[in-house]
Design a protein around this nucleic acid. Structure first.
Length: 567
DNA sequence: GCCGTTTTCGGCCCGACTGTTTTCAGTCG
């Protein structure tokens, strides 16, 4: 029996209980027990007595013992026999929770999306107490939406929309302050919607301007404190705007940034002190409200350091507060090691890229155009690469405050061979190897290709190691834990590609790389000077994996970096 | 169902919104 199975089972039990319309506190007790196990870093064998953990009692403990002794949970089996599994998808319909679903099943024998649809169309649902015609219509609309609307939208699809909204908000003079919040602010790979907090003393006027200025497909709600709309953009996206007074801004921003678990934890902390946190401020024991100028002030009020949005997740961040000062930050970044120029498929010359990096205050950059094999990207032949190296060497004469390193993003070919010979690679300062072809090969073959690259002493880094595009393609499915082992053994760097399409390696693997002592490079893979800004999103994504400055080679001095790659 | 140095019973994070109701239950973030 493994821990994951126990956690999954407890969560499943909670779900089935919810569908039965069980007491919500009972349901959450099972969820809490699952969370306790999840947050405990130890493996099952390392825990001497799970049953004594706080949050695990007689009933949840019995489930765990059952699983360990018999490999299955009799409680879950019992629930599954009682509750049809077709009810599970009904929880995805907004407006339907456990109680209502239990009622639909009990009174109308509704046990699937299909039978719910039929019952609504036959107008049977409105005959139930607590349901009426309006609910019935809404259910039908939500069933329709479930089939057409994606559940989550990827961060790279949201980014241009967020920027568009920010441009609009800047033109509304009655807005004192605004910020994106929600999971987008926490750099989640994908989000259900976008949240904005707006400080204003004229909420009605701001609301009207929002409704007039934005490309709105549907207005979901338009009250004095909340405007909720579906935007008419390439992929439909829901956006919530919360309108608050300036003195409530920090609290509202914190509340609507979440995560839910983080907020719960904060409220428990407040409660222990007899205080009450809400989106409007902190209510003291005497009923007075405490307001804050910033989120920093808010956390300081509870004797906590500022916890960056990126790590506000499952509550485990509160056990790692001592690590916060070591987390990598944008200011620590001294260079970008993966970018393209007009020599291959980039939009700018070498000098233009270097100049843009100089503006960012970097002390060193690497130019890494594509290699010969990648014809669609105008990959460099051996001759062109040698010529480019010469040009880069001479450019260094011109720039005294930034060091330009000659590199390549070299293809690992489908047969596992490398696109340049060793004698060419030896003339470069930094060699990236990456896969851009034959994604559908079996994992064994993909690993063979990666191993071939990693054991070559001239290769310094593997770029975008999985090849994924968030919410769009899975990449070439390498065995990443093994890749991390190899990187450690051969002293290679693995990339966190900061392009929001990729964010590759992903969080769980970054954590593993850190644990194994494999250094990470955060690179923008910029094809345009506008894309150099992705360093910010990359750094914040790295924070989600709790990467420290020292884990990230971009924070190293040029000397330390050169020493590592030439050793 | 779980918890307790105010506690073994009463509360569990908090507030808003919706649709159903005539004062509130259910759902949501």
């Amino acid at each position: 029996m493994d821990k994951k199975t126990i956690i999954k089972t407890l969560e499943k039990i909670a779900l089935y209980m919810e569908l039965q319309g069980e007491n919500p506190f009972k349901v959450s007790a099972f969820r809490k027990a699952a969370q306790v196990l999840e947050l405990d870093a130890r493996s099952l064998t390392e825990m001497d007595n799970i049953l004594t953990l706080k949050g695990i009692g007689a009933a949840t403990g019995a489930v765990i013992e059952d699983l360990i002794n018999h490999g299955e949970s009799s409680l879950l089996i019992e629930l599954q026999n009682k509750v049809p599994s077709g009810l599970l998808p009904l929880l995805k319909l907004p407006g339907l929770g456990g109680k209502k679903i239990a009622k639909l099943y009990k009174e109308l024998q509704i046990d699937s999306i299909e039978s719910l649809k039929e019952a609504c169309e036959a107008k049977k649902v409105q005959t139930l107490a607590g349901f009426a015609a309006k609910t019935e219509e809404k259910i039908l609309l939500e069933i329709e939406a479930l089939q057409t609307k994606p559940e989550r939208t990827a961060v790279w699809q949201l980014e241009p929309i967020v920027e568009m909204i920010e441009r609009k908000l800047k033109t509304i003079t009655k807005i004192a302050k605004f910020s994106v919040a929600g999971s987008y602010r926490r750099i989640k790979e994908a989000s259900k919607d976008i949240d904005f907090i707006i400080a204003t003393s004229s909420p009605k006027e701001v609301r009207d301007e929002l409704l007039n200025e934005l490309p709105i497909l549907k207005t979901i709600a338009a009250g004095d404190t909340k405007v909720s709309v579906t935007l008419d953009v390439e992929n439909e996206v829901d956006v919530d705007f919360r309108l608050v007074e300036l003195h409530q801004y920090a609290s509202a921003l914190n509340h609507f940034t979440g995560s839910k678990d983080h907020n719960i934890k904060m409220r428990q902390i407040a409660k222990e002190q007899g205080k009450k946190i809400s989106e409007y401020g902190v209510e003291l024991e005497d009923g007075n409200m405490q307001h804050f100028h910033s989120e920093e002030d808010f956390y300081a009020y509870f004797d906590l350091p500022f916890i960056p949005p990126t790590v506000r997740e499952d509550g485990s961040e509160f056990t790692k507060l001592d690590q916060l000062p070591f987390l990598v930050e944008l200011d620590d970044i001294k260079g970008d090691f993966h970018m393209h120029t007009t020599w291959s498929d980039g939009a700018h010359s070498i000098e233009e890229m270097v100049e843009a990096c100089r503006q960012k205050g970097y002390s060193h950059v690497v130019i890494t155009d594509h290699s010969d094999y990648l014809k669609v990207a105008n990959g460099l032949s051996k001759e062109r690469l040698l010529h480019q190296i010469e040009i880069i060497r001479s450019l260094n004469e011109k720039y005294k405050d930034i060091e330009i390193l000659a590199g390549t993003e070299m293809d690992i070919l489908p047969d596992g061979s490398l696109d340049f010979e060793d004698e060419v690679l030896q003339q470069l300062d930094f060699v990236i190897a990456s896969i851009h072809s034959s994604f559908s090969q079996p994992q064994e073959k993909i690993m063979e290709r990666l191993f071939h690259a990693i054991k070559n002493p001239n290769v310094d880094m593997i770029a975008h190691p999985t090849g994924r595009i968030i919410e769009q393609r899975n990449g070439y499915n390498p065995d990443v834990p093994t890749l991390i082992e190899w990187a450690k053994e051969y002293g290679k760097i693995l990339e966190l590609n900061a392009n929001p399409y990729r964010l590759d390696l992903q969080t769980e693997y970054l954590k593993l790389a850190k644990e194994k002592g494999v250094p990470i490079a955060i690179n923008t893979d910029a094809h345009h000077i506008n894309q150099l800004k992705y360093m910010d999103i990359g750094v914040r994504y790295a924070q989600k994996a709790w990467l420290h400055k020292e884990n990230v080679v971009n924070t190293w001095t040029l000397e330390k970096f050169m020493h590592y790659i030439t050793k």
